Amino acid sequence: MTTPARNHFLRVSAALAAADEDARPLSHANGYELILAQLADHRRQLKLVQSVVRKAEVKRRMLPEYAAWVEGVLAADAGLQDEVLMTVMVWRIDVGDFAGALPLAAYAIRHKLAMPDQYQRTTACLIAEEVANYAIGQATAGGPVDVESVEQVLRLVEQEDMPDEVRAKLHKALAYGLLAQLDKGFKGDAQAQRQQALTHLRRALELHEKCGVKKDIERIEREIKNAAPPGAPPSAPPGNGKS
């Protein structure tokens, strides 16, 4: 149960545990034992749920119970390994809360924190792939895409090592998000938006030939050409995208 007193206890416990190198493993801290036991119980509950959509709904209800702990860890900024923080980061991505996940992702990458064993990927790779998967799924289903957060993730993992296929998926996700905005009453420069999306689609194809964007590129190139005023130069050729 989330109460002001419990939240205060968790914030203080998280900050103290994160700041104390000699307290490792964190299970020696009473606050960490409490929050880790809660996480284990929540994981057991989630295993009983088969529907992916339903799992996301359950996680969304559970996440507020970890807010105080995460706040304490981020405030201490000690950079010690924390399974609760890393799991909460993943859950926030799972429910589409990119804005909530980004501070945790930035903290994790800056301090080179590892993912818990069950995730079997590097931290940067997981962040990039899970954000991309969610954004592509939303765009394909006609839902909203947090384009600004996807752009931030792309910058966040720019110097991180990961398979080219994963980085390609992130560029594809950003392109799909930009294009989705055009379908929802976009009030900016539509031609510039298409060009930006095309740049990311081309970069995705450059990174991974089988990422499934060839037809998208052809379609956007046609749209740009058809919308261009007479005498306008053609769109830039492939290979001009950034990492």
Score class of each variant (00 low, 15 high):
A175P: 02
T3F: 12
L154R: 12
A168R: 04
P64G: 14
G137M: 05
D41K: 02
Y119F: 08
L48A: 14
K225T: 11
V150C: 11
R194G: 00
L34N: 03
L10C: 04
E21K: 14
L156H: 02
P25D: 09
K47S: 13
M1K: 14
G241E: 15
M89D: 02
R43N: 13
R44H: 07
G79Y: 02
G185A: 03
Q152I: 07
L36Y: 15
N226V: 08
G31P: 02
T87D: 01
K59E: 09
S149F: 08
G72T: 12
H200N: 12
L80M: 14
L16I: 04
I109S: 01
F9K: 01
K242Y: 13
W69K: 02
I109V: 13
L26K: 15
W91F: 07
P64S: 12
P234D: 07
A168L: 00
I109G: 01
E151H: 08
E209P: 04
E160A: 10
A192W: 11
V95H: 07
A14P: 01
Q81A: 10
V49N: 06
W69I: 10
K59G: 05
A197P: 01
Q191C: 12
F98M: 14
G31M: 05
E218F: 11
G72S: 12
A132V: 02
V70K: 01
L85Q: 07
H42M: 15
K242R: 13
A68Q: 09
P25G: 11
Q120T: 13
A23S: 09
A75V: 07
V95Q: 09
R92E: 00
A132T: 05
Q195D: 09
A236W: 00
Y176T: 03
A5R: 08
L154S: 07
E148M: 14
K55F: 03
A141W: 00
V53Q: 15
R121D: 10
A141F: 00
